[in-house]
Design a protein around this nucleic acid. Structure first.
Lengths: 237, 237
DNA sequence: ATATTTTGTGAACAGTCGTTGACTTTATAT
DNA sequence: ATATAAAGTCAACGACTGTTCACAAAATAT
């Protein structure tokens, strides 16, 4: 009986911080619950600034005031969501880039990968799509900067193709923004489909792939500004 | 003095309804005020389903209950706005189509016309852009049907070009949806600019025109499905 | 001239919202 | 063992929301 119950707790020094701490764990758990609750609420008809703090808290199984232990206000939560979504997107790009280039049917494989990724992260993309125009200035510019970076990275990827030597940086940017447009449009159409409508998804795939092929065909025929001026000078001389 | 003041009112039969009636006039006036109030409120950071009925009424200089004399609820007002915006857009298309085709610099002129039109109807396009994804299912599908029709009309226009004979209907649709994508993207960028930033607007014009040129170049090189199959059969035989 | 319909007003309702402050509980630090 | 700091709860506030009902004013119909 008299035995002292010794639940000896490891001090920070004996074990090097590999334990997340039961409190931090709990904190991260409800933080995540809040973020997920917001994402889930946006799957319906609501847009981000039409969902209330109380709704989010309720949906996360927590009292409204607990919200403030994690975010200053809804805007801060929104920015966190944008950050997460864009980070995930960048990671996909990095992986896709590291893979060896299968020169044959490159477009088909890329489109396939991208569509699969969107399907797997539907809620994030739903959020991005809505806030790309609906949201506060802060959210909007965050999303926009993300896609701008996306375009630039794609441009540098395109520059590695042998046939891209003739094109200037601006022209490459113009082309890759065109391609990103196709991806965005495809994404939007994809999100408006029931997730398991395979036939329609396949159609979207084909449509996007065709459009990209057409863009590449156009790029091959594109007369760079420099050449066009050369030609003009020749005609006049 | 004793003259009886006779403000004789024309009966419905003597003059054929060309008078709007002082009451109808009044009604149409506040109805318009409500619609405009909603549009104006959306110029800021708000999205359509985050603005309140009371806000709209207040902004229109009218008491909240008066709203119900004109619309059943906010959704009905929203649908009216979509309808108006799309009708305006279609009218622009019709006019542009009736003009004789100046074969030279056709793209430049078209882009110029369109950008000018967007600038002149900024509020409507702001609304369309936001509700294309933010809004209720009803609003969204209304917008979507409008753009789908837009794409189809553009496709029939493209079909009149001599070089378009080789292409199937599906391929023409694919191409015109690509072009509409460019227009939508241009519109969105335009709306995020201060209306008088001429330098940036010119840049957007050039970007869009280049992208369309590239699409046309690609279309010229496009191998229609039929020809591709013919070629394949030839190679095998 | 009188009756009727229409357009807008005013007060009031039940509900939700964001945010506050003072509290319990519980994990960490001393 | 005790103090401290953090995470979550509870009650309450003033403000705003959509919608209702009865009523005033004014245009139209009879």
């Amino acid at each position: 009986m008299g035995m002292t119950r010794v639940t000896r707790r490891r001090s920070r020094h004996e074990e090097e911080e590999n334990d997340t701490g039961r409190r931090d764990m709990r904190k991260q758990r409800t933080r995540r619950a809040l973020l997920d609750a917001a994402l889930e609420l946006m799957q319906g008809e609501q847009s981000f600034n039409s969902i209330s703090l109380r709704e989010v808290a309720r949906n996360a199984g927590v009292v409204p005031t607990a919200f403030y232990r994690h975010f200053r206000d809804m805007d801060e939560l929104g920015l966190t969501l944008v950050e997460e979504a864009l980070r995930a997107l960048r990671q996909m790009m990095r992986e896709a880039r590291s893979a060896p280039l299968p020169a044959t049917s490159l477009i088909n494989r890329s489109v396939q990968t991208y569509i699969g990724y969107v399907q797997a992260n539907r809620d994030y993309f739903q959020f991005l799509a809505k806030e790309r125009f609906g949201g506060s200035r802060a959210l909007r510019t965050a999303v926009r900067q993300g896609t701008a970076l996306f375009i630039s990275e794609l441009a540098t990827d395109l520059a590695r193709f042998p046939t891209a030597n003739r094109l200037s940086t601006e022209e490459l940017q113009m082309i890759s923004s065109l391609i990103v447009n196709i991806m965005i449009s495809t994404t939007e159409q994809l999100l408006d489909l029931p997730p398991d409508n395979d036939a329609e998804v396949d159609w979207l795939h084909d449509q996007a792939a065709q459009q990209m092929r057409l863009v590449f065909l156009g790029s091959m025929q594109w007369k760079p500004k420099s050449e066009r001026e050369k030609q003009k000078a020749l005609a006049q001389g």
